[in-house]
Design a protein around this nucleic acid. Structure first.
Lengths: 327, 327
DNA sequence: CAATAGGGGAAAACCGGTTTACCCCTGGAG
DNA sequence: CTCCAGGGGTAAACCGGTTTTCCCCTATTG
C-alpha cells in the first residue's frame, strides 16, 4: 500500500527502470507500444514523480521562491501585495510550479533566506520585490548565481532582468493633469523614501513631499501636516497608495476642507477602496495582478534559459473621478 | 567551485560519509574530537544540506503547504488573509520551514493540489482554511494520510486537529451588548453562507441576515438593502468583517442616517480601517496573526507526531467605540 | 586473565528517479 | 553477402544524504 515507484511500474510492465523513465519523460528509446503500456500502468497505479528524487538527479527543484520583508511594507493593510502574489500564483499554478513564501525581518535575513534556498536547492529561482536604492540584494543574488527577476525595477538592474511599469511617465501624466486643472501647489504623500517605487515617482513629481510607511495612520498624519502646516495650503495631493488616499480624505473631512471643492486628491493603485469612497477617488490604475503574472512568466523564462526579451513597460492609466476638479 | 557535499567533507576530514552524517546530525557514533573537526570543515566549506537528498533518504520534505481558494474569499481586499499568513510565516521561519503557497479555483483543484504535493513529497503537512459545511477536504486529506490542521474549525473535525477561537461566544457577547444598549431590531451583514465561520456566528445571532462575499461592494449593497427594505429599519448592524463595516458606514452617511445616533454598527476583525473611520467602529478584536502562529505551531507538532493537546479556544474581545450607542 | 560490552568508525545498501554506456537485432546501402 | 546505422532496450552509475551492518579495539567485569 505504499506509494508506487518507477521500479514497481517496471516490474509490472516487464521492462527496466530506464525504459519507464524514458517513457514517462517522453524521450526516445522505447517503442510507441511499450510507451503506451507503461503510461497505462503508471496511471493505473497512480504514480506521481517524487519531487525529491527527481530534484536530486537532475538538479532542478521545480519551485520558485519569494521572500518579503514583513515590516518594510505594512503587508496586512495594503491590498497591493495580495494582488501581486495572486498574479504570480495564477501563472505558476497553471504550470504546476509551487511557490515558496517567506517573510523576514530585514534585508540581511532576506539574503540569507535566498542563500539557504539556493544552497539546499529548494528553488530554481526567486522574485525580488520592493527594491531600494543601493539595494544589496541584486549583487548578492547575482554573485551566488541564483536566477531571479526584479519586480518593479527596470530591466538589467544589477544584471538581473526586471519587470516593471513606467511609473515615471504615469506620474508625469498625473502632474500634467493636475496642472491642466489649474493646480499649482501640489503635494504628495509618498511611501517609504528609499524604495525604488518612491524614487522613480519622486523624479517626475514637483511639489512638497511627505514620506510615510504606506499605512493609513501615516497617510492621515502626513495629510494633516500638509493641510495645517505653515505656508499656503496645497490645492491637490497625490497619494502613493489607495489606503492613504482614503485616510487623507477622512482627514480633509475632519478639517472641514471640501473635496474636491477646496482640495483635489489622487490615489495610486486603484481598488474597491477608491471607488467606494465619497467622493470616489481619481486614481492611477495599476494592474498589479498582471504585474505578478508577467513577473512569474519572466522568471520561468529565465530559469528555462529562454528568451530574455521584454516588451516596452506598460504605463499605468489615470482614471479621473469625483475627487479632482479645476481650482 | 561546485557546492560541497558530505563526501567532500569526508575526504578532507579523512573519514567516511557516514561519520560526517553522524556528526552533522548530532548522533552518536563519532568522538567529540572528530565531530568538532568535521563541523569545522563543513563550516569552512560552507556546506548546506541538500533538501532534495535528505528528503529522498529519510522521507521528510521539511516544508508545509497552504492552498487557498482565490475567488471564494476576495483575498485582495481583505486584510484577514495577509495577517493570518504573516502569523503562520513568523512561526515557520523561526524554525526554517518553508511554506508552499498555492491558489486554486475551487475545492476540487485544492484537493488535487494537496494530493500532488503529498504524492511528490513536497510537504510534510498542510493547513486547511475556510472550511465549509459538508467540506469534502478533511475526509480527503485524512484518507490520503496527509498530516493537516484545520484553521478556524473545531478540534477533531473530520478527524483532524483544529485551531480556532470561540466565535459563537463572541457573537453572543455582541448580541448581549447590543441588547443591553436597548437594541431590539438587529441585522447582520454576514460573509459567505456556507463557510463554517459564518455558520458558527449564525448560531449565536438573532435577527435579519444578509449574506455577501466579504467585499466592500457587497457590504454596501447589503447595508442598503437592510436600511431601505420593507419593514422596520434595524437599529444595529453587525458586519462579518471590517471592510464591509466601513462600506456600510459610507452607505449610512449616503442615506443620511446618523451613526451612532440612529444606527449602531459593529465590525468583526479590528484593524486600522475600523479605527480610522468616522466615527471609529466598535469592533470584535480577533488576533488573526496569533491564530496563524498557533496554527503553524500545531501543524509542526502534529508532523512531529507530538502532543495533540490543545488549550481552550480563545474568545475574541469586543472593543466598544463610537459607532455604538444606546437607542 | 578470559569474557564481554560498547564506543568509534568503515563499508555498503538504500531512497527514487535520471542518464550514460552498451548490447542486440533488423533493415538498407554498397 | 557484408557492413553499418539506428531503433529498442538493458545494466549500471549517479545525485547527496541517511541508515544499517559489521568489525576492530579498548575498557570493564567476574
Amino acid at each position: 500500500m505504499k506509494r508506487p515507484t518507477i521500479a514497481d511500474i517496471a516490474r509490472r510492465a516487464g521492462v527496466t527502470k530506464s525504459a519507464v523513465s524514458f517513457a514517462l519523460n517522453d524521450r526516445g528509446g522505447v517503442s510507441a507500444e511499450t510507451r503506451r503500456r507503461i503510461l497505462e500502468i503508471a496511471d493505473e497505479l497512480g504514480w506521481q514523480r517524487s519531487s525529491a528524487a527527481s530534484a536530486l538527479s537532475h538538479g532542478r527543484a521545480g519551485a520558485v521562491g519569494l521572500v518579503v520583508d514583513r515590516p518594510a511594507r505594512t503587508l496586512d493593510q495594503e491590498p497591493y501585495f495580495m494582488q501581486f502574489i495572486s498574479g504570480v500564483e495564477s501563472e505558476l499554478s497553471a504550470r504546476d510550479v509551487p511557490l515558496l513564501l517567506q517573510m523576514t525581518a530585514d534585508q540581511e535575513a532576506q539574503i540569507a533566506a535566498h542563500r539557504r534556498w539556493w544552497a539546499e536547492r529548494r528553488v530554481d529561482g526567486v522574485i525580488l520585490v520592493d527594491l531600494c536604492v543601493d539595494d544589496p540584494r541584486p549583487a548578492a543574488i547575482t554573485e551566488m548565481g541564483l536566477p531571479a527577476v526584479v519586480a518593479g525595477g527596470p530591466d538589467g538592474l544589477g544584471g538581473l532582468p526586471g519587470v516593471w511599469d513606467d511609473e515615471e511617465a504615469a506620474m508625469r501624466a498625473v502632474v500634467g493633469y493636475l496642472r491642466a486643472l489649474g493646480h499649482t501647489r501640489l503635494a504628495r504623500v509618498a511611501g517609504l523614501r528609499h524604495l525604488m517605487h518612491t524614487v522613480v515617482r519622486d523624479r517626475a513629481f514637483e511639489g512638497t513631499v511627505e514620506y510615510t510607511d504606506y499605512s493609513g495612520e501615516a497617510g492621515a498624519k502626513a495629510t494633516r501636516a500638509l493641510l495645517t502646516g505653515p505656508g499656503e495650503r496645497p490645492t491637490a495631493i497625490v497619494y502613493d497608495n489607495d489606503v492613504m488616499a482614503v485616510a487623507g480624505l477622512g482627514v480633509a473631512r475632519e478639517l472641514g476642507i471640501h473635496v474636491p471643492g477646496e482640495l483635489s486628491l489622487v490615489a495610486w493603485d486603484d481598488s474597491t477602496l477608491t471607488r467606494l469612497a465619497h467622493p470616489a477617488l481619481t486614481a492611477v490604475s495599476v494592474d498589479i495582478f498582471d504585474r505578478g503574472v508577467r513577473t512569474a512568466r519572466r522568471l520561468l523564462d529565465v530559469i528555462a534559459g529562454g528568451n530574455q526579451e521584454t516588451g516596452p513597460p506598460a504605463v499605468p492609466e489615470l482614471v479621473p473621478r469625483g475627487s479632482t476638479e479645476p481650482v
